[in-house]
Structure formats: C-alpha cells, structure tokens
Design a protein around this nucleic acid. Structure first.
Lengths: 180, 180
DNA sequence: TTATCCATGTAAGAAGTTACATGATTGA
DNA sequence: TCAATCATGTAACTTCTTACATGGATAA
C-alpha cells in the first residue's frame, strides 16, 4: 500500500488529474497524511504503463495540458486486491516525542516552549480537519476525519494534563549544567 | 532529528552497545516507534567518525566483540542542538485508514475483519506499552509511554464506536459488484 | 529440538521528499 | 505587488527497511 494505491483509490471516486488527486488527499486526510507531487506524478505514469489507469490530455491555454486519469477495469481489480492485503502496521514518527524523552538535557523554558509550539500545531491541525468536514460527505470520509480529530484531541488533552512530568525535570536533574 | 540523534540521546543515559540501544528504544517507545539494526549500526559508525561518540570494544568469547559507545562532549553538544531544533511535523502513515476510505469497494465482511484485526493490533500494542511501564522509571519515560497509551486508547474507542460508518457502506453502495 | 537471546555488520532496494524548472491568472 | 492557485514533471537526495551473513548459548 503506497502512493500508487492511494491514487487508484481516489480515482475510484471519479476521473481526476494529479493535481486534483493531491487536493482531494489533503481535504480528506488533512494534516496527518500527505503525498507530494514528486510522488504522485511518477505514480500516475507508472500506473499508466501498467494499464491500471488511462489518461486523456485536455489542452489548456497558457498552461500545461491537464492530464485526466481514469481507473481501468484492471486498475479497479488491482485496487481491491491492494486494499484487502492491508496488514502493515501504522507508522508514527514524532521528533517532538523524542525530544521530550531527553527533556532533562534542555533548559526548562525550552521544554515549555517546545510543548507550547506542539500544542499550537496540534490545535491548528484540528482546526484544519474541522474546516474540511462536510456533513454531506461520504461516511468513509467522515470516518477518517473523525479518527484524526479524536486522536489529535487525545494528544492535546494528554499534553495539557501531563506536561509537568517533563517540565519539572530539569530543575531536579543533576545533569542540568547543559542549560543554554 | 533521526536515528543518529536517537542514539545520542540514549547514550546520554549512559554507555551502551548498539544492541542495547535498540532494546532501550523498544522498551521506551514500544510499538509506535522503532529503529532497526540496519539503521543503528551505521549511525553509530558515522557518529564515531564525527567524534560524537567514542567506542570501546569488549572482547567476548564465542561472540562478536561488544562495542560499547559513550557520548563525547562534542556529541552532547550536538545532541542538545538537535533537540532544540525540533520542528518537523509528526508523521503518521496508516494503510488501514487508507483502506477504510475505500471501504465501499470491499465486501462488508472484509471491512469488518480488517477492523477487528486492527483492534487486535492496537490492543496488543497497548498491552506492550503497559508491560514496559515501570513506576520507578524517569518521568520523561513515563510521559512518552502515557502519550502512547492515551493515543492508542483513543483510537480503539473511536473504532469501536464508529465502525458502523464504514461497515454499513457496502450494503448501500451501487458499486458493490466488486464483492469477492 | 526449536526458538530466542546475544552481537555486529553490509548491500540492495524501497519509498518518499525537496528543490528545481516553467509560467499565466487571480485575488487580496 | 505579492501570494496563492493552477499544472506537470525530473533529478538528486535522504532515510530507513529487509534480507543476508555468521554463530554460540540458553531456555522452554
């Protein structure tokens, strides 16, 4: 499951260009999942070579042709097979969490600032998800967005209630000579 | 912030071998963050070349020498600088969520099975976190593990309460001919 | 006797990002 | 006037994973 599968999936909603696929992914998954043009365009070209999508170029004045892709029958079968094969674990990487593990090495004010910044980021991302929610959206889309909302809310609540665990540390630490 | 920073950080707790670093990362971050030997060993070699760590080989009978790494002063400074520079967004990739977005294309029984499997995985990972928690652990470690616990719990709760949003879909869908 | 732990390392490859190249149009 | 939107694409690079190579000791 990769960008190619994601493209096939979005195309199952209807024909779209690479540009439009990226916008749809942004709207649906919001801040917690994204795909760059640098991965989408090569993916669409590969899928075309494989016969999973077909492409129609639409001439536009003063712009590159808009290439609209459609799922072929073979692509639809490949998509269903890919989806059913889902088994990989979720991947989560957070530089912030790693930094928190070593909070003792930073001055307390720095730790507080990092947490404040992270809360701001999470709240903004929560806002983005809310802004993209439409009551008339398909249930699957609402399901995804609700998941993101729930997880972000949980993360924000946890940081607010437990930040003292890392903020207090440097004061008590013997290795506190590292302060800026 | 990458595997190199993570190695430096773990070494700030005391000298350790590559093998031991991996075990510590597993214990602290549990299932939601891991680093393979294939990334740790090269990272330690690079850090040695850079002078950020020093290495003492301990001969062992019938085994490769155990190479114990220690943070140098230069490495400690590099670590603090890396930690303070934290700014990258958290990265989260979930093949499961992508599959859920296209749940309509799968037979309902398949969707239910995928959700059940995911719940089993999340519950097991929650159990792993709990198993690694020690009341006497440093606050930072408890903070990380509490974060993981909170987020997993939120995810499990959400799936349990909202799975009907995607499980019912295929029945209502017109594109349901895709069923196995 | 079979799996897991200990212990390090390399090579090949997967998968994606970032930066660059190009450039008109539209709204603030 | 400045940023954002539309529109595609390539090349270089980063970063990490997976599989392989090696192999004794120990616990179930």
């Amino acid at each position: 499951m990769d960008i190619k599968t994601l493209c096939l999936g979005v195309l199952s909603f209807g024909p779209a260009s690479g540009y439009e696929i990226k916008k749809q992914v942004e709207r649906i998954f919001g801040p917690f999942f994204d795909a760059s043009f640098g991965s989408i365009y090569p993916a669409l070209n590969a899928l075309t070579r494989e016969g999973a999508v077909s492409c129609t170029a639409q001439a536009q004045d003063k712009r590159p042709d808009k290439k609209v892709y459609s799922l072929t029958e073979s692509g639809r079968l490949k998509l269903v097979a890919d989806l059913a094969a889902t088994s990989a674990r979720d991947r989560f990487r957070s530089e912030f969490l790693v930094a928190m593990l070593f909070a003792e090495l930073l001055p307390p004010s720095r730790v507080s600032r990092l947490i404040d910044e992270r809360l701001t980021i999470y709240r903004r991302e929560l806002g983005e998800i809310a802004a993209n929610q439409r009551p008339d959206a398909p249930a699957a889309e609402r399901f995804i967005q609700g998941f993101g909302e729930t997880v972000y809310r949980a993360a924000i609540g946890y940081l607010e209630e437990n930040r003292h665990l890392v903020e207090g540390q440097a004061l008590l630490s013997k290795q506190n000579q590292a302060a800026e």
